[in-house]
Design a binder for these strands. Structure first.
Lengths: 327, 327
DNA sequence: ATGGATAGAGTTACCGGTAACTATATCCTT
DNA sequence: AAGGATATAGTTACCGGTAACTCTATCCAT
């Protein structure tokens, strides 16, 4: 930078301003520096900048896994927003482990990232404490049922599941199964389960643990788990699930000769493209990971420029798409 | 760090060694420093480290989009390997634009990343030049048909498509369609198209541009494009595609009353889970993005420790899964 | 004409590590 | 016992920016 400054006949500080805040310097100098920069291909060293200014233009995101489209959608939205605003994105995966998440948060804070995006609101106590203490803008994505660390963007999984369950009950279903991802380490699923139970309770229906099961995100798992559940609870007349597992349930119903939605109603969650691939399209709760990621990026960057602000919660809501697998 | 050093009664350099190369210091000091570090929660500042040592423990990956599972699989493999080896991952998406890719490479090089992973081998001239000149370990993923910048890991898309086409011809198909992602900016598709043409040529079959089409990665697009193609070329008896579009083709065949594979054989590419969701499972070319990502991470980190090495090409090959949509 | 605001630019010190070198003690080897 | 290798630790200078401050010129209101 000093070389560039010398060639342009200005001080290093002026060159620094040229990159950070061009309208603070005079037009003549601005053009002169621009020319030298173009000629030499000079680019400021981000490490030096970070060290000196104690901040970066890097945002970090920690997702359980990138293999699931709801998360990769969110990352895609985030990446797009950040790129447009000249910020970089660091990514880490924790495989639903709060301990790994804590380590990753620690590392990212050491990197002085401009912001951190986490999935959900279930973190180790130390994670929460570190984030609060650091003052780093933080977004919790996909869940808003709890008080946020800083910013929470998403939907109430509890409300969505309660709503969905209530409507199935209103449609006359009495033996409703709940097949989801394993609830361990996945707070969203816990909240949905709560919503499901709340709806049963308000309707005066009993909660039967035999109608609840968890399985990893694979179509075949949905089929297998439903198969077992149906063997033990032949009177099951509806299944609340997600799009991947729900697809498996739907396939298994066909194999078992059960009519959908007459014998068994099925609902998904996410509105993936595959949920409408079969003849009978899956009824599902639509949420937009991409939109959440985009908004997360915008809010993080905006928060940088302001001073400490009170926590914020943004409810992006959900939409139930009633399609062919419900009556 | 100087504070930690003082508390442990050693010099800052010794503390630095404690983090970088613990076995260079004596056992007594090591324990003393460990204690102080544990008490204070001290963590070295990566920016200072980067500035001084002129290198980071960050690897960068640039993908066209993260929405497509082949890319997110690769990123997942990469992330996992890097995390295990205590390296971070920066990610950027370029939406198939070589110009954006160039800018991103430039930025990442300024960050002194320890390695860069790109998708494919189609880059701007300047991108290639910058990467070569920087000496940064570079992996090109998913394509090995061209000479690599540094390391190339993947498969020969040309060979895979030629192989597949030849076998369809051997099975008696004569009017083979080619429906893929838009070839613009996507060199993998270009190579596959070359392989397709090469196979036609060796068999003495004519190349008909009316049997070639491109569409964005959505199931419905596969259906739409096939529908048009079939309207104009009713004698089409096979389609080479990818899993998403191929699924659309398969659905459209059902709608049009065409028997699969009797009237129309269909092949995909990628072996996504959805390709085996329908009654008749899609014949497909299986490639493992996850494995490629994992290997990319390992090779990058290994290359760091050595001196300049000759370019390397790793052919991970492919496997054709003959299932129900081919005779 | 005077005091004060504002724009544009420069000076100085510092951010927090590590490379490269030096210093010392210990242990072999011949 | 002398010379050399090895292990361990310290010293010094520097990496490349930016914050915070100072300085000068210009403009305006009173």
């Amino acid at each position: 930078m000093r070389d560039v400054a010398r060639m342009a006949g200005v001080s290093a500080q002026t060159v620094s301003r040229y990159f950070k805040n061009p309208d603070l310097i005079g037009l003549g100098n601005r053009e002169r520096i621009a020319k030298v920069v173009a000629d030499t291909g000079y680019f400021p060293n981000p490490a030096a900048s970070t060290l000196s200014a104690n901040r970066t233009n890097l945002v970090a995101v920690i997702v359980p896994t990138i293999d699931h489209s709801i998360f990769s959608d969110a990352v895609a939205g985030l990446a797009q927003t950040l790129e447009a605003r000249n910020h970089g994105l660091m990514i880490a995966t924790n495989g639903f482990s709060l301990e790994k998440e804590e380590q990753q948060v620690e590392r990212f804070l050491a990197h002085k990232v401009a912001g951190i995006v986490l999935i959900g609101q279930h973190h180790s106590e130390r994670t929460t404490r570190l984030l609060r203490a650091s003052g780093t803008p933080t977004v919790e994505l996909l869940e808003i049922d709890n008080p946020p660390i800083d910013i929470a963007i998403g939907l109430s999984n509890l409300a969505a599941a309660r709503d969905l369950t209530s409507r199935l009950i209103a449609l006359g279903r009495r033996r409703i199964g709940f097949i989801s991802a394993p609830p361990e380490g996945n707070d969203r699923v816990q909240r949905r389960l709560e919503g499901y139970r709340a709806a049963l309770e308000s309707a005066g229906l009993p909660f039967d643990p035999g109608l609840v099961a968890g399985a990893e995100f694979r179509i075949e798992n949905g089929a297998r788990v439903f198969s077992q559940m149906h063997a033990e609870r032949p009177d099951i007349d509806a299944v609340i699930s997600n799009d991947i597992l729900g697809l498996g349930v739907q396939l298994q119903c066909a194999r078992l000769g059960l009519a959908v939605p007459e014998d068994v109603a099925i609902t998904g969650f996410d509105d993936l493209e595959v949920s409408s691939i079969l003849e009978r399209k899956l009824t599902t709760v639509k949420i937009s990971g991409f939109e959440m990621g985009t908004l997360a990026g915008e809010m993080l960057l905006e928060r940088q420029s302001r001073d400490a602000i009170a926590p914020e919660v943004v409810d992006l809501g959900y939409e139930i798409l009633w399609r062919d697998t419900t009556p």
